[in-house]
């Protein structure tokens, strides 16, 4: 049986790990290669590397950082940030990605997901959905939450799935960096609508928050600051969840 995954996320800007709150106020959180090595040794199931300034600065992803991180790990690496076309996907795979996450460019041109899946398979194509609560429900955002898009995140994720995305990286902008727990309402709604795996992102806090994300239907739970700041260790998260009946990789 498939295990639930614990994922560590490296938000990278200018070759350094950074972390903010609600996508704002980025602070330095260390060297990405060192962090990758540490998380790998702690038993992380997968790493996500997001070049958080790539789309806004209109430059390509930090290929050197991707290569350096990829070279020291033996678990899969998903890379996102600044992916605009199929050639970008190929370049990221050549640098060391195993999967590629797409957000802004797919919102602008959803057919990108189909074109990427036709070449690399759906299992390589991750749709990254940044969702924010509004008085009326939810909406999505692109460009590292800077651009609001009046669209329902679940409807968009479902469309992305039908177009060729093989996984959804579902981030709550409201919870990002707050350590208040994942948005389990959002996760449950996504689970009810989607066939593809869902990665919960935004709000990882205490140990219980991981178990809650899985219970809400997430196939993987992603965290950044709680790992960067040493508040939680990956093995600790896994043993906590395993003791509560969640199947994890030993």
């Amino acid at each position: 049986m498939l295990a639930k995954r614990v994922i560590a996320c490296l938000d990278v800007a200018n070759g350094r790990v950074v972390k903010g709150v609600n996508f704002l106020g980025l602070r330095d959180a260390g060297d990405p290669v060192e962090a990758a090595r540490t998380y790998c040794a702690q038993g992380v199931d997968e790493l996500v590397l997001l070049d958080v300034t790539a789309t806004n600065d209109r430059r390509a992803s930090a290929y050197d950082t991707v290569a350096a991180v990829s070279a020291v790990i033996d678990v899969p690496l998903t890379v996102g940030g600044g992916v605009r076309d199929v050639a970008d996907v190929a370049r990221l795979l050549d640098a060391g990605a195993d999967k590629v996450a797409i957000n802004s460019a797919a919102v602008a041109d959803p057919s990108l997901l189909t074109r990427a899946a036709e070449r690399f398979g759906t299992q390589c194509v991750v749709i990254s959905v940044d969702a924010r609560r509004t008085p009326a429900g939810y909406e999505i955002a692109t460009h590292s939450a800077a651009v609001r898009v009046p669209r329902d995140p679940i409807a968009w994720a479902l469309q992305a799935q039908e177009l060729g995305a093989g996984e959804v990286l579902l981030t709550s902008i409201d919870r990002d960096g707050t350590q208040r727990g994942f948005d389990t309402d959002l996760l449950a709604a996504a689970r009810a609508a989607l066939r593809v795996p869902i990665v919960a992102s935004g709000g990882a806090g205490d140990l219980a928050s991981f178990a809650e994300a899985y219970a809400a239907g997430a196939d993987a739970a992603l965290a950044a600051s709680v790992f960067h700041d040493g508040m939680l260790r990956i093995a600790e998260v896994k043993s906590y969840c395993a003791a509560r009946g969640v199947r994890v990789r030993a």
Binding site: L2, A3, E46, Q123, G166, R195, P197
Partner: peptide
């Protein structure tokens, strides 16, 4: 019911 098969098994 949930595909692709993605992760550790």
């Amino acid at each position: 019911p949930r595909l692709p098969h993605m992760g550790w098994n």
